[in-house]
Structures are given as C-alpha cells and as structure tokens.
C-alpha cells in the first residue's frame, strides 16, 4: 500500500512535530509513508471565506500531487473534511466555468482516499492499540469537523484509551465548538475569544494535564488562550501522544 502524508500547511510551518509524529507512528506500525513535496494547502481557508476561485489551483495541485497513492493520511480532520466534502464543489464550479472540465473526475479519484489519522489507523490499518505509553491525564476535544463533517465517531477516544498509562478525563460541554472556525477567529475575534474562553474554563474544570485533539487548528486557538493566561495545561496533537517522544533527529 502506497501511503502519502498530507501534513497540512499550518502544521508544516507552526507544528512540524505533528508531521514528524505521524511519520514516526506509521513507521513503527510497519507502514511506510511518503511526503510528496509538491503539496501545499487544501484551500479550506479560502473556500470557507468565500474565495472560491482561489481554491481552483489548490485543488488542482492537490489532485496532481496525491494521484496514484492508495491512501493519503492527514493529521487534520478539518482539512480531510475540506477535501472529502468540498473539493468536489470547487471542481464542479471549475468545470462549469470551463476552466478545467476534467477536474471533477480527478477529484473523485483522489478525495475518497483521504483519511484523517484516526480513520486511517482504525479503518485501514485495523489497529486501536498503537503501543504507545503516555502516563498523564488527558482531555480530548472532539473537534466539530471530525465529529460532524467527517463522522470519525469514537475512533480517537478508542485509540487514546488503549495508550498505556493514559487517563482520559471527561470534559464538560466537550462537543461544543471552541470558537476557532478558521478566519472566523479573526473576522469575529471577540465572539471567537468568548467561545474559546468558555472552552478554556471547561478544560481547566476537567483537571487534565494535557488537552488533545485531531486538529492542531483548534488547539492553536485554545492553546493560545491557555498560554496567554499562563494556564498549566499542555496542548498536543493526538499523533504526538500516539507516536511517543522523539529521540533526537
């Protein structure tokens, strides 16, 4: 099985440790993974803000870079949902406009093979115990796009529950949006922060040492609020917990 990593642009720049964790984890599970360097961005930020035409070259690039792989795994449920749900919309509009008549077919080829990390581990590799150890109390934030758009269900929790030493604690209002919302975070910053601060209160109420999720983007927002307030809670992508610590290199 030829597997590619789609790292997601903000992980690439701000959280490279998340991409390294996915590589480490998959290799430990015996699954080779490639990083096609032609990849950039799924276009979600543009699409969700209304700049649809700007998405066309990004979708074209995505299908060009990831064509031919059996699976594309990404540590971002939000990007996975953009690809699986909305790349077809961008492609149809490009075809209707006469810009790229065959784009819908190329998208239909690639998009269904894109998996969020927990989907890939549980559904494709068939593992829930990835052999990790993490002796800490952890709260899990079920991100909106993972739950409602992708429908990952309880796959992330099952993976976390199988981690040796990890105590998964309940968080009040866990299913409520943290308020990140992509450009919503800066276009409606006051509302976004108000939602985020309520989430911060829930994180603190959970008593967890670590907050984790399948999207670094939500964690960037919650973590940014926690950090500004000096709160002693670490945010980590689920991949970092499942992969275990880096040994140099």
């Amino acid at each position: 099985m030829r597997v590619a990593l789609f790292v997601a642009c903000y992980n690439d720049l701000l959280y490279p440790q998340v991409g390294r964790a996915v590589v480490r984890l998959l290799r430990r599970l015996g699954q080779p993974v490639e990083f096609p360097p032609g990849q950039t961005c799924c276009g979600q930020m543009h699409f969700n803000t209304g700049y649809r035409e700007a998405c066309v070259p990004l979708v074209q690039g995505f299908v060009r870079v990831f064509a031919g792989y059996d699976a594309v795994v990404t540590p971002s449920s939000s990007c996975a949902s953009m690809v699986r749900h909305y790349h077809a919309t961008v492609a149809r509009e490009a075809a209707d406009a006469g810009t790229d008549p065959s784009l819908p077919a190329r998208v239909a080829e690639v998009a269904p093979r894109v998996y969020e990390l927990s989907e890939f581990l549980v559904d494709v590799l068939g593992v829930t115990d990835v052999g990790a150890r993490f002796p800490h109390t952890v709260a899990f934030h079920p991100t909106c796009h993972s739950r409602r758009l992708l429908g990952v269900g309880d796959r992330p929790e099952r993976l976390l529950a199988a981690v040796d030493g990890l105590t998964l604690v309940d968080m009040p209002h866990a299913e409520t949006c943290c308020g990140f919302g992509g450009t919503f975070a800066v276009k409606n910053a006051d509302t976004s922060v108000a939602m985020g601060l309520d989430k911060v209160a829930d994180v603190l109420a959970s008593g967890a040492e670590v907050l984790t999720a399948s999207d670094t983007s939500c964690l960037m927002h919650i973590g940014g609020l926690l950090s500004r307030r000096g709160a002693p809670v670490r945010v980590m992508h689920m991949a970092e917990i499942l992969a275990g610590p880096e040994d140099g290199g």
């Binding site: 790292v7 992980n11 690439d12 720049l13 701000l14 959280y15 490279p16 998340v18 991409g19 390294r20 590589v23 490639e34 990083f35 360097p37 975070a185 800066v186 276009k187 910053a189 922060v193 985020g196 601060l197 960037m220 927002h221 973590g223 940014g224 609020l225 950090s227 500004r228 290199g249």
Partner: peptide, 25 residues
C-alpha cells in the same frame, strides 16, 4: 485580531518539509 487575546507558537526553526528533505525521507 489574533494576538489581542491569544498567543501563537513561533514558526518552527525547521518546517516539516525542510525536516523531511534533511532527514525525514
């Protein structure tokens, strides 16, 4: 709008793609 209430990690010294080019692959 972002930094009014939120911090952000500094962009990584070495991006993922740079790491991949150097040692990842």
């Amino acid at each position: 709008a972002w930094f009014g209430e939120r911090d952000l990690p500094a962009p990584a010294r070495e991006s993922f793609r740079a790491w991949w080019r150097r040692v990842g692959r």
